[in-house]
Amino acid sequence: MEKLKSHIDALNLKYLQNLNDFTKFLLLGEDELAGMPFEFLKDLEKADGKFKVPLTSYHVTPVLEHCKVGSTRKQIAVAYGQKGGKDNVAILENLVQLRHKFAKLLGYTNYADFAIEPRMPKTSRKILEFLEEMSEQLSDVANRELNILKDLKIKEEGNAQFGMEDLLYYIKRAEEFKVDLDVGEIKQYFPVGLVISGMLKIFQDLFALRFDEIKDVDVWHDTVRVFSVWDASSSDLLGYFFLISFPGKESMPTLVL
């Protein structure tokens, strides 16, 4: 039993390693990336006059949200979905069999029942019943909203088939249509420095703290800032944190305590 579990754990780890070691990218021209913010493009490396778009979630998600070119969205979604390649497909097939064997040895009907048993639903059957019930209740609403997105794509790209790669882009477009909002235009009024200073002030006021930035300290990137944290009333030193921000990229500042 322990040997089987160790084998399963090793395969899980190998699967994740294959994803993490995946370093492929797509070469895309500027016209193929129409609609992408300048801040996104300027941080990409170039080769042969084209942009190198790594197949990481950090890069793929913005393309699926902002790129106006349907063929580019599809190309990058398909490539991203193939991360790990045939090796990971083989690992998954093996894992399905080994997990089923493991669950049967423990007296469960299948691995799903084993995984769910400690949780509130207790059995996979109850989960399926819940999902079927939710599907019945929400299918009409989902179909109506999907039709709105499909109609929007027809207006913008012609009579092209709607795919999963279009979902994020047209959800965002529908939101902009609904409130006549251009997120890119609004962002210019919220520079990262102003947002960070405002965020820190909120934390200081809310928790009665004082943050002092420490200059001239060795950090691993020039965007990293170091702050000491003090109790505002007693002036006791409570600790330190790193503030990691990437101006120009679509990410929120990150605190590392």
Rank of each mutant, 00 (worst) to 15 (best):
Y111Q: 05
Y111P: 01
D113W: 01
E117H: 13
P118Q: 03
P118G: 01
R119P: 00
R119E: 02
R119C: 01
M120F: 09
M120C: 01
M120R: 04
K122E: 03
K122V: 15
T123K: 14
T123Y: 09
S124D: 06
S124N: 09
R125L: 15
R125A: 15
R125Q: 15
R125E: 14
I127Q: 02
E129T: 12
E129W: 10
E129H: 11
F130Q: 10
E133Y: 11
M134R: 15
M134I: 07
M134V: 10
S135I: 02
S135F: 12
Q137A: 13
L138A: 03
S139L: 08
S139R: 11
D140Y: 04
D140R: 08
R144L: 11
R144I: 06
E145P: 11
E145L: 13
L146G: 10
N147K: 09
I148T: 09
I148V: 11
I148R: 02
L149S: 00
K150D: 03
D151Q: 15
L152N: 10
L152K: 13
K153S: 15
K153E: 11
I154E: 06
E157G: 06
G158W: 05
Q161H: 11
E165Y: 15
L168W: 03
Y169W: 14
Y170D: 08
I171N: 08
K172G: 05
K172L: 13
K172S: 08
R173A: 14
R173L: 09
R173M: 12
A174R: 08
A174G: 02
E176Q: 13
F177R: 13
F177W: 08
F177E: 15
K178S: 00
K178T: 08
K178G: 02
V179Y: 12
D180F: 06
D180W: 07
L181H: 11
L181Y: 14
V183Y: 15
G184W: 06
E185V: 05
E185N: 05
I186G: 00
I186C: 05
I186H: 09
K187D: 12
Q188E: 05
Y189N: 07
Y189M: 04
F190I: 08
F190D: 02
P191E: 04
V192T: 15
G193C: 01
L194E: 13
L194W: 14
I196G: 03
S197N: 14
S197C: 07
G198I: 13
M199F: 12
L200S: 05
L200M: 05
K201L: 10
I202W: 07
Q204F: 03
D205F: 00
L206R: 13
L206N: 04
L206F: 03
F207S: 03
A208Y: 04
L209R: 04
L209A: 01
L209Y: 02
R210A: 01
R210P: 01
R210D: 03
F211C: 00
F211W: 06
D212H: 05
E213G: 00
E213A: 02
I214G: 00
K215R: 07
K215S: 04
D216L: 04
D218M: 07
V219F: 02
W220V: 09
W220H: 05
W220S: 03
H221K: 09
